[in-house]
């Protein structure tokens, strides 16, 4: 409940933040704080310094650039949940955001903070994989784009380098014929995902042209169910086909296990939730 001491530096611009991180390489970045502060209160994280980027105006906001939606890293879960623009352009994200934590948590927690933290049971990673999102990172060596598939490396580990800040999330505008869904089985205590499945399908004339499935909570890092994606390409997304494609889709080996849900149960949930998400997405794709 009482974090250890640290030095505090506040950046008002991205450049200032990068400079501060260079001067204090031991520092952690503080955005909304809803991934980091809980760990600090339990003294599971004791960073000697924090660089607060929470007030940097250029990291805020949601805008559209052609077929891409650009979401500033400081956009809160709440802003995503209620964004009228996102509901039109990329409605999967509001659906996912509504499942994160609880309303007061969503008022503070940010999309960039959540992704950079890479909790294996966080909700957004599943969506990023399903959407084929790209993260923009800015560091001492300039900026670079990291595909979601390359971003989540392991438990609390991402492709971000020391000194780098995640500044934007780029997701595609979901057009006509695209369906989406997020199915989550929350842990009853933490409300993190025991398993969360995000799905985006592109359907033409009743045939699935592309399916992308991101799964969180089940494994030490979020992953894509490529076997199911491939099995469904070119198929009709009816109940029987989807059931066949999802049954035993994940092996329990390597999955997370805790007193509430074993690896075997998580594997089972992956199949059930993926099927439910796919069928809901297919219906939305029309």
């Amino acid at each position: 409940m009482y974090p250890a001491s640290f030095n505090y530096y506040r950046a008002m611009t991205l450049q200032e933040a990068l400079n501060l991180l260079r001067q204090h390489p031991e520092a952690k970045v503080l955005a909304g704080g809803h991934s980091l502060i809980p760990l600090m209160k339990l003294r599971l994280a004791n960073p000697p310094a924090l660089v607060d980027i929470g007030r940097i105006a250029e990291l805020k906001g949601i805008r559209r650039a052609d077929g891409t939606v650009v979401i500033g890293a400081l956009t809160t879960h709440r802003e995503v949940e209620f964004s009228e623009e996102l509901k039109q352009w990329c409605p999967l994200l509001p659906e996912v955001a509504a499942h994160i934590g609880d309303p007061p948590v969503r008022n503070m927690g940010t999309i960039g903070g959540s992704l950079a933290h890479a909790d294996p049971a966080a909700d957004y990673p599943a969506a990023m994989l399903a959407l084929g999102a790209t993260m923009k990172a800015v560091g001492p060596g300039g900026e670079r784009m990291i595909a979601a598939d390359e971003f989540f490396l392991g438990m609390l580990t991402t492709a971000l380098q020391p000194g780098e800040i995640l500044t934007e999330v780029h997701v595609p505008v979901l057009g006509k014929g695209t369906g989406w869904a997020y199915e989550k089985f929350p842990h009853p205590a933490s409300r993190y995902a025991v398993v969360g499945v995000a799905v985006v399908v592109r359907v033409e004339n009743g045939i699935c042209r592309e399916a992308r499935i991101g799964i969180t909570g089940a494994a030490p890092r979020a992953f894509r169910a490529t076997n199911v994606e491939q099995a469904l390409a070119g198929k009709r997304l009816d109940e029987a086909t989807v059931r066949a494609a999802t049954e035993n889709m994940v092996s329990p080996e390597g999955l997370l296990s805790d007193p509430f849900a074993s690896a075997a149960y998580r594997a089972h949930l992956c199949a059930v939730l993926t099927r439910r998400a796919l069928l809901r997405a297919a219906e939305r794709a029309g």
């Binding site: 842990h187 009853p188 205590a189 933490s190 805790d258 007193p259 509430f260």
Partner: peptide, 11 residues
């Protein structure tokens, strides 16, 4: 005790 916080023990 594995259920030692409200993250693990569900009220």
């Amino acid at each position: 005790l594995l259920s030692a916080s409200l993250l693990d023990y569900a009220l």
